[in-house]
């Protein structure tokens, strides 16, 4: 068999989008990885675009939100804004797309969300809506889930950020409400600028490490554990000093 992905994708499409339009299976990936469905977007400025037009030219960070969210959406977008501002390169090295998943959101909602974050005229940022059918395609492909919540107009969902390069998904992170994984967020943004973070945080208590990744500065900093690597040589020197200095030889 070929890889599991085409089968997986096909099953998802059949399950989630029986009424999917024709170009549902015309992904635009080139390397054979997970290609995203090329959905049609309506942008905040009223123009239309295909996802491939945004993600084909430049790497793309894709996230979902809805305007009326009282939970994770606005804080997460604000963290993302902060991260992209720190890392730089938005608009020149990569593009950010915030896609509404609430049918109730209008173009005005998109614009007010952008304005609320101070992103109204920021290069590299797009806020968009799409049709319910197309939305199901893209959320299905990225594994994004939202269910209506108890309060009217609200959804239960986690924040999701997907990194797309050459039309292929290369990584994805989710952040549940009340949890903030800045490391993953910054690592994903840096990824699209060609940086790579090899250090993962480990769960639980940890003794001295070699390096740590500082999400704010993006630096991989030496940690105290590196000193332990010098300890054997220092121990040996110390022993020499004690042995040879104390018992000076008979001349």
């Amino acid at each position: 068999m070929r890889t599991a992905w085409p089968g997986l994708l096909l099953t998802l499409l059949l399950t989630l989008a029986p009424d999917a339009p024709g170009h549902a299976d015309t992904g635009f990936g080139i390397g054979g990885g997970q290609a995203l469905p090329d959905i049609r977007l309506e942008l905040g400025d009223g123009s239309n675009a295909l996802l491939s037009e945004l993600a084909g030219q430049q790497p793309l960070l894709l996230t979902f939100f809805y305007r009326r969210c009282t939970g994770v959406c606005t804080p997460f977008l604000s963290l993302l804004h902060d991260a992209t501002a720190r890392v730089g390169g938005a608009g020149s090295d990569y593009h950010i797309l915030a896609l509404s998943f609430d049918e109730a959101d209008t173009l005005q909602d998109l614009r007010s969300q952008a304005a609320a974050l101070g992103l109204a005229d920021t290069a590299g940022w797009s806020f968009a809506t799409t049709t319910p059918a197309q939305l199901r395609l893209i959320t299905g492909a990225l594994g994004f889930e939202a269910r209506p919540a108890a309060q009217p107009g609200q959804f239960d969902h986690a924040a999701l950020l997907a990194a797309v390069r050459q039309g292929q998904l290369i990584d994805r992170m989710t952040m549940a409400a009340g949890r903030s994984d800045l490391r993953r967020l910054h690592a994903l943004v840096r990824e699209l600028r060609g940086e790579f973070i090899p250090v993962l945080p480990r769960p639980g208590r940890m003794a001295l490490g070699c390096f740590r990744f500082d999400a704010r500065t993006g630096l991989i900093l030496p940690d105290w554990g590196l000193l332990l690597l010098a300890a054997p040589a220092l121990g040996s020197l110390g022993a020499l000093a004690l042995l040879f200095v104390r018992s000076g030889p008979p001349r």
């Binding site: 890889t3 599991a4 998904l169 990584d171 989710t174 993953r184 769960p203």
Partner: peptide, 21 residues
Amino acid sequence: DVAVDSTGDLLNVATSDRITV
């Protein structure tokens, strides 16, 4: 296709021991 950082992630991420390129 996406990173698995912990055993818990295995529940949300589709994985396989064979791929085609």
